[in-house]
Simulated assay, not measured.
Amino acid sequence: MEAGIVGLPNVGKSTLFNALTQSKNAQSANYPFCTIEPNEGIVPVPDERLARICKYIPPQKTVPAILKLVDIAGIVKGASKGEGKGNAFLSHIREVDAILQVVRCFDDPNIIHVAGKVDPLSDIEVVEIELMLADMQTLDTALPKAERAAKSGDKEAIARAEVIRKCQAHLATDQPLRKLKLNPTEQKVISSFGLMSMKPILYVTNVDETDLEGKGPMVQQVRAFAEKVGAEVIPVCAKLEAEIAELEPADRQEMLNASGLTEPSLAGLARAAYRALGFQSYFTAGEKEVRAWTVPVGATAPQAAGVIHTDFEKGFIRVEVYGLDDLETHKNEKAIRAAGKLRVEGKAYVMQDGDICHFLFN
């Protein structure tokens, strides 16, 4: 699963990507489309629960959850019609599972805005409209084929045509598809189309160093908009984060303290992106390692076991589960078991965020 970093040109996408992945390879020139092919990187998801578990179960190594990020070139108005190499860039967005839209919320005469002025809501609108127009093209192309197949009485084709028309009607109201409620069957039918305005979105407001908490008027505009569409907003100063990422750990903490930050803003961004993708973590803990494993919210115990190894899911018998609170109260697993706090769950168990697990399998 991966998230794509998108936005208009010159809003700080590549700077943010480089800071997140601690990469120095991507270009950062002050002109549109300096990112042609998408750059990819793996980012650890900071989780303070790992350190809390390690306090009671000291391991040889600690392994956090990870997130794959893709830095996609800037989108401009008319991208759905091919403007600014738009078709190629939109195809990259089609491949990701969630969208992190970087929105410029700072003024700097030395950094040219593609529209000639800094207007975060206009930037959001440009990207949203282009994604919806591209989705409409996809659906318009797919409908005739689905209708032809439906004439034969094929139930799957009939269902596909119905969902396509439902999505078209929704887009005609100028609303992205993520606001359209589809049942699981409809979602499965439409999933192969890679509809972009259906993907979950997170707004990353790129602020200057005087507004690290995102209290300025431009960020507040984005917050108000995001609240209406049910999205989250994370303020980040990409320039500062890039500088912090290049420092040694001791110097990094000193710079964070001087900036009034308890941790890099990118840590909060990674966690927010993880949530936007619909992920949660469970843990395994032992002498060799304490590890965070990634599962979708709603995953069952066998599905969670399958993340470790497919054989675990196939031969799943049961899972022994306890919580971090139990560990901090009783100090070790033996005491947790003696206190009757170690739960034994079967195949129907739905995993909870933060579960600490031992899987038993055949």
Results as ranks from 00 to 15, higher is better:
residue 48 E to M: 13
residue 100 L to R: 03
residue 14 S to R: 03
residue 31 Y to I: 04
residue 97 D to L: 02
residue 281 S to I: 01
residue 312 F to Y: 14
residue 301 A to P: 03
residue 252 R to N: 13
residue 268 G to N: 15
residue 125 E to Q: 14
residue 125 E to H: 14
residue 65 A to P: 08
residue 9 P to Y: 07
residue 152 S to Y: 04
residue 292 A to S: 14
residue 68 K to H: 10
residue 192 S to E: 14
residue 97 D to A: 13
residue 155 K to M: 10
residue 19 A to S: 15
residue 327 L to V: 01
residue 160 R to N: 06
residue 182 L to T: 05
residue 11 V to F: 02
residue 283 F to A: 06
residue 199 K to R: 12
residue 161 A to E: 04
residue 273 A to V: 00
residue 166 K to M: 10
residue 339 A to N: 06
residue 150 A to F: 07
residue 139 L to W: 03
residue 246 E to L: 05
residue 180 L to N: 09
residue 342 L to I: 08
residue 27 Q to G: 06
residue 228 K to G: 04
residue 251 D to S: 11
residue 349 Y to K: 14
residue 121 L to P: 15
residue 280 Q to V: 00
residue 14 S to T: 12
residue 346 G to R: 13
residue 159 A to N: 14
residue 235 P to H: 03
residue 31 Y to L: 08
residue 301 A to K: 10
residue 309 H to N: 15
residue 137 Q to D: 11
residue 161 A to D: 04
residue 115 A to I: 05
residue 61 K to W: 09
residue 7 G to A: 07
residue 323 G to L: 03
residue 211 D to T: 08
residue 272 A to Q: 01
residue 151 K to N: 14
residue 134 A to E: 01
residue 315 G to K: 09
residue 288 K to T: 10
residue 342 L to D: 12
residue 134 A to I: 00
residue 275 R to A: 10
residue 272 A to C: 04
residue 355 D to Y: 06
residue 80 S to T: 04
residue 42 I to A: 13
residue 147 E to A: 11
residue 30 N to L: 10
residue 226 A to R: 09
residue 173 T to G: 04
residue 341 K to M: 06
residue 9 P to L: 11
residue 116 G to D: 08
residue 300 T to L: 13
residue 156 E to G: 06
residue 202 L to S: 04
residue 139 L to H: 02
